[in-house]
Computed example of a mutant assay.
Amino acid sequence: MTGATGGKTDPEAGGIGIPGFFAGLPRQFPGSEADTLAALGQLPSLPPSACVAEFACGTGAATLALAARLEAPVLALDPSADFLARLRQRAAARGLGDRIEPVVGDLANPPVPDGFLDLLWCEGAAYILGFDAALVRWRACLRPTGFAVVSECSWLVPNPGLQARTFWYAAYPAMRTVLENIERAEGAGYELLATHILPPDRWAAWADSLEGRLDALAARGETLDPAFVRALAREIALYRNTGEEFSAVYYVLARK
């Protein structure tokens, strides 16, 4: 995948490079601060001095929202030092620098002690390990009373149309329905508290963001891998015509 995943596992490819393309965006995955806070609002109250981490935080769109709303420190983990450098700048600009601890780290081996976190957050990156594997691995990071909020691209209908099916079967063949993901989460040792589904207009806004970034780079004479640009154009067209066949779904979970 390219745009749908924020380029988090894509190699550098010509000119500015794919990670550099996404580093210049305010978000690396569809969504909004309102959606982050809506999912957060489905959780019970966290304990005082809660230990919170966002895995695959990117440039920090969700991190900043969590730090501001919870008024608690947030460990912001990402494999990309460039993404974290942008997060530091954004946090300082919002007066949140003292609440955010950026850490370069591996999602498969996060630098978090077992049983440490009250809340683990991840938007749009569990697929890197595989949704099932991520939930199993990250459960160990949670306290026995801890929570995880993990968003995952999911089918909303049993029989999606040809355009969506053709794209996602190639880009993310492991993508499943909401019910299937709930069953896998429960099997991994979680209780489902709620779900929050990104509405279609968030995908249209994401398409606008991607297209705007392409236009800005072109105006500056920056080059990108032509194959990446063609793939991104196909994604943009899909996101503008998605309807309600698929979306990113926040799974709000409690450790059992």
Score class of each variant (00 low, 15 high):
138 W>G: 08
196 H>D: 02
154 S>Q: 03
119 L>F: 12
122 C>K: 01
21 F>S: 01
240 R>Y: 06
118 D>I: 07
135 L>Q: 04
146 G>S: 01
256 K>G: 11
81 A>W: 04
250 Y>V: 07
80 S>Q: 11
212 G>V: 10
84 L>P: 11
145 T>I: 01
99 R>P: 01
190 Y>I: 10
28 Q>I: 02
169 Y>N: 13
233 A>E: 15
78 D>N: 10
9 T>W: 03
57 C>M: 10
116 F>V: 00
161 G>E: 12
103 V>A: 10
8 K>R: 10
98 D>K: 12
104 V>D: 03
129 L>F: 07
220 R>D: 13
21 F>W: 10
49 S>L: 14
117 L>E: 09
238 L>I: 10
155 W>N: 00
205 A>M: 10
89 Q>T: 15
89 Q>F: 01
167 F>H: 15
7 G>W: 01
109 N>V: 08
2 T>G: 02
80 S>E: 14
215 D>R: 15
248 A>V: 02
165 R>L: 12
121 W>C: 05
24 G>L: 09
191 E>D: 12
136 V>W: 00
146 G>D: 04
221 G>W: 06
171 A>V: 02
107 L>V: 12
217 L>E: 13
115 G>N: 13
114 D>N: 05
59 T>E: 11
169 Y>M: 04
25 L>E: 07
56 A>P: 14
107 L>I: 13
142 L>P: 09
20 G>T: 04
73 P>F: 04
148 A>F: 03
171 A>F: 02
191 E>W: 05
17 G>C: 03
201 D>M: 05
46 L>K: 02
7 G>A: 03
161 G>I: 01
211 E>A: 14
105 G>A: 14
216 A>M: 08
6 G>E: 02
155 W>C: 00
136 V>P: 04
81 A>S: 15
156 L>M: 06
193 L>N: 07
151 S>T: 11
155 W>T: 00
185 A>D: 01
106 D>E: 14
244 E>I: 08
143 R>H: 13
223 T>N: 04
206 W>G: 00
139 R>P: 09
79 P>V: 12
7 G>T: 03
110 P>S: 10
252 V>M: 11
226 P>V: 11
73 P>T: 14
2 T>V: 00
216 A>F: 05
25 L>N: 03
182 I>L: 13
223 T>K: 08
185 A>E: 00
185 A>H: 08
34 A>Y: 07
233 A>L: 05
128 I>M: 14
184 R>T: 12
106 D>L: 02
196 H>A: 08
39 A>K: 09
83 F>M: 15
62 A>I: 05
77 L>W: 06
220 R>C: 10
88 R>T: 14
255 R>G: 07
242 T>N: 15
30 P>G: 01
190 Y>K: 04
157 V>P: 06
140 A>H: 13
251 Y>T: 02
82 D>G: 11
220 R>V: 00
239 Y>M: 15
249 V>S: 11
100 I>G: 08
248 A>T: 03
190 Y>G: 00
